[in-house]
């Protein structure tokens, strides 16, 4: 009697608990990451954004007050900000276009079977493993006429009259960090695009070839549509990431000569850690964040409409 009662009472309780466990299960898997990201990234982001509305200069005891939109007014009239915004566009667009173009060609080359492919792939992807600041240093050394070969090659090719350091030319210095960035970033695109290429079912190509479609046709009719979603998402992530990426510029040129390589993220770095003006730095960062969010929203919308039309 008692045993039966206990059993009858326990059964529904266990199933309720079980149902609760089932509902909670996905959260158990995701909570640690959400907690960590919220605590270490999003809370500091909110605090950082609030600095944009304050007059916050480190080591200045009079600062810290709430100043409303003052930082943004200063920013609108700051020629260095507009210059850095222009450079950000040059830096980001050139880097992404070159990384993507070369990455796509490399992925297509590696998608063809040949002997020694594994080894070639490992070697050609190697720059991605190089720490970013070290690739900046390495390329700064390559451009240095004392220890690097590049200036001497440029002279031999007639691109320069004397072996000078490209990084000290106000007109062309930005191509130094861009070269380092392209070198370093091609493997990322190549890896993701190669993965996407390898997931295209091979029978599609066979069928198309039997129908008499040439290589160019097959590329346009099969490869590109299959790659498009991957391309959109990688280009979006990469653009945002490169626009925020200051390491190479800081290591190679520190924004110089004469601010000609200063991009917004390196400008933020300079404002915060050389002038200790955290309020202004945060205002610039907030503008950059808004621009990037708008860009990402446009790209995601484009991708959705494209996917919907397919």
């Amino acid at each position: 009697m008692t045993a039966a009662a206990t059993a009858a009472g326990a059964a529904p309780r266990r199933s309720a608990r079980r149902r609760l466990a089932l509902v909670l299960e996905p959260y158990l898997y995701t909570v640690p990451s959400v907690f960590l990201i919220a605590l270490i990234m999003l809370v500091p982001l909110a605090v950082g954004l609030s600095y944009a509305f304050r007059d916050l200069v480190l080591l200045d005891p009079d600062s810290g007050g709430f100043v409303g939109l003052d930082n943004f007014r200063t920013l609108a009239a700051d020629a260095a900000f507009w210059n850095a915004l222009g450079n950000t566009v040059t830096w980001t667009v050139s880097s992404v276009v070159l990384q993507f173009g070369l990455g796509l060609v490399l992925a297509l080359l590696l998608d063809v079977p040949f002997r020694g492919r594994g080894l070639v792939q490992a070697l050609v992807f190697l720059p991605w493993a190089v720490p970013s600041f070290l690739s900046g240093l390495d390329w700064a050394w390559l451009f240095n006429p004392v220890v690097g070969p590049l200036p001497h090659w440029f002279v031999a090719l007639g691109l320069m009259t004397t072996p000078d350091n490209l990084l000290s030319s106000p007109d062309h210095a930005i191509w130094g960090p861009i070269a380092a960035n392209v070198w370093w970033g091609v493997p990322f695109f190549a890896i993701t695009l190669l993965a996407a290429l390898q997931s295209i079912p091979p029978d599609l190509y066979e069928a198309a070839a039997m129908d008499g479609a040439g290589a160019v046709r097959r590329f346009r009719a099969i490869t590109l549509p299959f790659l498009a979603p991957t391309i959109a998402i990688t280009i979006m992530l990469r653009t945002v990431w490169i626009a925020n990426f200051a390491d190479l510029i800081v290591v190679m040129t520190r924004g110089g000569p004469a601010d000609s390589t200063q991009i917004l993220s390196s400008y933020i770095f300079t404002q915060a850690f050389q002038r200790l003006d955290f309020g202004y730095a945060s205002a610039v960062a907030a503008v950059l964040l808004v621009l990037l969010l708008a860009y990402a929203a446009v790209l995601v919308t484009l991708r959705q409409t494209f996917l919907a039309r397919r």
Partner: peptide, 27 residues
């Protein structure tokens, strides 16, 4: 809440990390 978490992760990739150095230091 799945979409919200994905959005959270996406936003965490969108801003220059320089901007959170000082708040993280204070934390």
């Amino acid at each position: 809440g799945r979409a919200a978490i994905v959005g959270l992760m996406l936003v965490s990739q969108m801003f220059p990390l320089v901007m959170i150095v000082a708040p993280i230091f204070r934390l």
